[in-house]
Design a protein around this nucleic acid. Structure first.
Lengths: 308, 308
DNA sequence: CGTTCCCGATACCCCACGGGTATGGCGGCG
DNA sequence: CGCCGCCATACCCGTGGGGTATCGGGAACG
């Protein structure tokens, strides 16, 4: 049985007339008679009563036609769904990101993507750069936002683009001696209790800090580790010490904290978006496209990618 | 798009290999490649990724395959439903019957039919012979059981067969003078208050009574009319008068009533099953078949009917 | 680094079948 | 009784689905 038989039977049921039904499906009447006869032969039951008053479905015909309509609708739907999936209008995008991306980058980006792709299921997971890179490689995520491009085994299968840069700032509680200062010098950090992201979770950040803090780097060895910027802010507010974080945490500033620039200026590892280089998912392509339009300057580095 | 494309795509998704999928659907590998390519062309999207490691569905392919499975299942279901409907295994049977048929005829007949055709929706309506005949003619019923074959306009389009015969009995309350008598003579009914079915609802019954009661027929003109045997029984129990009903009402006898044979014996119009002669519904055919097997003696009169 | 193997795509051929035209059979209606 | 409308049958044709042979390319060996 072929879809053609269903289309013909439905047309016949609708027009109750072989000639008009044939015209409706764009063939002549004799072929329609043959096809209907073949269908009835295959089913093993008469589907239509040919009476002088017209052609009417039998009980078997009624039963058949109902499901035939469903079947054709499913076929049309299958094609439609495939098209939409191919255009990236439907599907799933699993995004892993570090918490600080929620401060400036993600709100406009995810908002725009969600508006432009309402039928894509967005699955977002806040996690460290290290964990998101691992999840990306084992297929658990489709795209990640972390600090610094992923390193280590498998990293060559990933493509990464910079989606943001940030300088380092220091955050202290309002009771801290540095509170009220516009800036603090790197050297002043040497004897402070530092609060930073965990070394194993944000390796690029830690490496950069160690390189850039100079003589103050030794303070990192006795630093308190906090998994996200809000915890760093909270601990700093407690007066425990000096938090080191990207400047974008200003948007999450609390009244019981004070934020100082660090002199000389220290540029942190870039905020990086990564995905599997071999991933031809249209949803991913759409997401990258939205990213390109949302983040000026990313365009050039993404344009080399072939669109699926 | 044809069903063939769906079958091929599903086979390819299952085997992840053009050669084996082609073998599975019984064709050679090159035609399968062509058909898949044509399908992808029509959809406008690549459905499968041909990698050295095997053939895998793309996101669009996954979306397509899910619905394709549904579509093929619907098609198979359509054929199956049609077959079952053609065999009379599914469908609907609307039966109109007079209340007295529930006493002896219908319990075993409907029980058997229900067991043998569990997926047929039985819609039963107790109604008078006159109303059921009208409903049969205007298509509101498929088969009726009444007393006496339908008469009047349209009756020639109906086929009727006798499915039971009954004699007349008289029913009285236990306080009535006749209570305790084995039988009552027709002549004794002349001066009694009779309780009978309405003349307009059971015309054959009334005509027969008028013909057969002889000199007692005049009592019919002042008879109390009751729509069903239970009402006749109840009114008789009240001592209002003498109920006249088919002998089968014995199975519904109440302790406060007494039933007398009528002498000489009066045979009532036969219990008749009717249906539209042009009705080729398989469910009806099955019902008639069950009736034939359930009611010995009906066979001969039904055997002339061509089965749908 | 060449050889071999495997797999999908391409090229080309054929015939089965879907669809066309012409016509027959038949019931309804004027 | 003859005409007409409608579906079935008969017969022909062209397309396209499916066949075989072969190519191209990537992976896995020695």
């Amino acid at each position: 049985m072929e879809a053609r038989h269903l289309r013909y039977a439905l047309a016949l049921a609708e027009h109750r007339h072989f000639g008009r039904a044939a015209a409706a499906v764009g063939i002549a009447q004799p072929p329609l008679s043959k096809q209907i006869a073949a269908l009835e032969q295959e089913i093993g039951a008469r589907l239509f009563d040919r009476t002088p008053g017209g052609v009417f479905p039998t009980a078997a015909g009624e039963a058949f036609l109902g499901r035939a309509r469903q079947a054709l609708a499913e076929m049309a739907g299958a094609a439609l769904d495939a098209e939409r999936a191919a255009r990236g209008e439907t599907g799933r995008l699993r995004l892993g990101f570090i918490g600080s991306a929620l401060l400036e980058l993600l709100p406009p980006l995810l908002g725009r993507f969600g508006r432009e792709h309402p039928d894509v299921r967005l699955q977002v997971h806040e996690m460290s750069t290290a964990r998101s890179a691992a999840a990306l490689l084992d297929g658990g995520l489709d795209v990640t936002i972390g600090r610094g491009a992923p390193r280590g085994p498998g990293a060559e299968d990933l493509t990464s683009v910079t989606v943001g840069t940030d300088r380092l700032v220091a955050v202290v509680g309002t009771g801290h001696p540095y509170a009220g200062q516009r800036s603090v010098r790197v050297g002043q950090l040497r004897d402070q209790q530092l609060i930073v992201a965990p070394a194993d979770q944000e390796p690029a950040l830690r490496t950069a800090l160690r390189d850039l803090l100079g003589p103050a780097a030794s303070a990192l060895d006795r630093a308190v580790e906090a998994r996200d910027v809000h915890t760093i802010l909270g601990l700093a507010a407690c007066g425990i010490g000096v938090g080191l974080a990207p400047a974008c945490l200003r948007v999450a500033a609390r009244p019981d904290t004070w934020i100082c620039e660090v002199r000389p200026r220290i540029d942190l590892p870039e905020l990086v978006m990564s995905f599997r280089a071999a991933d031809r998912s249209p949803v991913l392509a759409e997401f990258l496209d939205t990213t390109r339009r949302q983040c000026p300057g990313v365009s050039a580095r993404l344009d080399g990618r072939r669109r699926g």
